[in-house]
Lab assay of single mutants.
Amino acid sequence: KKKREHFRQLLDETSAITLTSTWKEVKKIIKEDPRCIKFSSSDRKKQREFEEYIRD
Rank of each mutant, 00 (worst) to 15 (best):
A16V: 07
Y53W: 15
W23A: 03
I37E: 13
K45N: 11
K46M: 08
F7E: 07
K27L: 08
K24S: 14
D12F: 02
I29Y: 14
K2M: 09
F39S: 03
K27V: 05
D43S: 01
R48Q: 14
K3S: 10
K3N: 08
E49T: 02
F7D: 07
Y53E: 07
Y53K: 04
E13D: 06
R4M: 04
W23K: 10
C36A: 07
S21L: 01
E13R: 00
E32P: 00
H6V: 11
T14E: 03
K3F: 09
I17V: 12
K45W: 10
R8P: 00
R4G: 09
F39I: 04
E51M: 01
T22S: 13
D33R: 00
S21D: 02
S41C: 09
L11Q: 04
K27C: 09
I29P: 09
K2S: 15
W23C: 03
D12K: 01
R48E: 15
L19E: 15
K38M: 14
D43K: 04
K2N: 13
E13S: 00
P34A: 09
K3T: 02
W23V: 05
R8E: 05
K46V: 06
D43V: 11
L10H: 04
K31R: 13
F50L: 07
I29A: 07
L19D: 12
A16H: 15
K3M: 02
Q9M: 04
P34I: 12
R8K: 06
L10A: 02
T18Y: 08
V26A: 07
S40L: 01
R8I: 06
R4K: 12
Y53T: 05
T22A: 07
S15Y: 12
L11H: 03
R35L: 00
R4H: 14
V26P: 01
L10Y: 04
F7R: 02
R48H: 14
L19N: 08
C36D: 08
Q9I: 03
E13T: 05
E25F: 01
H6K: 12
H6F: 09
I17A: 03
K31S: 14
S40E: 08
S15N: 08
S41V: 13
E52Y: 13
C36R: 00
R55K: 07
L19K: 07
K38G: 13
D56F: 02
R8D: 04
Q9V: 01
K38D: 14
T18C: 08
R55A: 11
Y53S: 07
K3V: 08
S41N: 10
L11P: 01
E52R: 14
Y53G: 10
Q47D: 11
E32R: 07
R44T: 14
K28L: 13
D43W: 07
R48P: 08
K46W: 06
K31C: 15
I30K: 03
K2A: 09
I30Y: 00
F50W: 03
E25A: 03
S21P: 03
P34Q: 05
K3W: 01
K24T: 10
L19R: 09
S40I: 01
Q9N: 11
K38Y: 12
K2Y: 08
K2G: 12
D12M: 07
K38H: 11
I29R: 10
D56R: 07
S40Q: 05
K31H: 13
I37S: 08
R44P: 10
H6D: 15
T18D: 12
F7H: 01
S21G: 04
A16G: 15
I54W: 02
T18M: 04
L10G: 05
K24A: 14
Y53N: 09
K24Q: 14
W23T: 09
S21E: 02
S21N: 10
R35Y: 01
K38V: 10
R35C: 02
T14A: 07
I37N: 10
S42G: 07
R48W: 10
I37F: 02
F7V: 01
T14Y: 04
E32G: 12
R35K: 02
V26C: 06
F7C: 02
V26G: 05
R48A: 14
Q47R: 11
E49R: 00
E51R: 06
I29C: 10
R4Q: 09
L19C: 12
S15K: 14
F7Y: 10
V26K: 01
D33L: 15
D12T: 06
T22N: 13
K27A: 06
S41H: 14
P34V: 06
W23Y: 03
L10D: 07
F7G: 05
R35G: 03
R35A: 01
K1V: 15
I54S: 12
K27N: 01
E25V: 02
D43P: 02
H6R: 10
R4F: 07
F7T: 10
R55M: 12
K28A: 13
Y53A: 05
Q9Y: 01
S15A: 13
E32H: 12
R4A: 12
Y53F: 09
K46A: 12
I30N: 06
T20Y: 07
D56N: 10
T22M: 02
K46T: 05
I17N: 00
W23M: 00
E32Q: 05
R35E: 07
F39N: 06
K38R: 13
L11I: 00
C36W: 02
W23L: 00
L19G: 11
P34E: 14
K46S: 03
R44M: 12
S40W: 04
H6C: 12
R55C: 07
E52M: 12
S15F: 06
K24Y: 12
E52D: 15
I30H: 04
C36E: 07
T22V: 04
I17P: 05
Y53P: 10
D43I: 14
I17Y: 01
P34S: 07
D12Q: 08
R4E: 11
S41W: 11
Q9T: 09
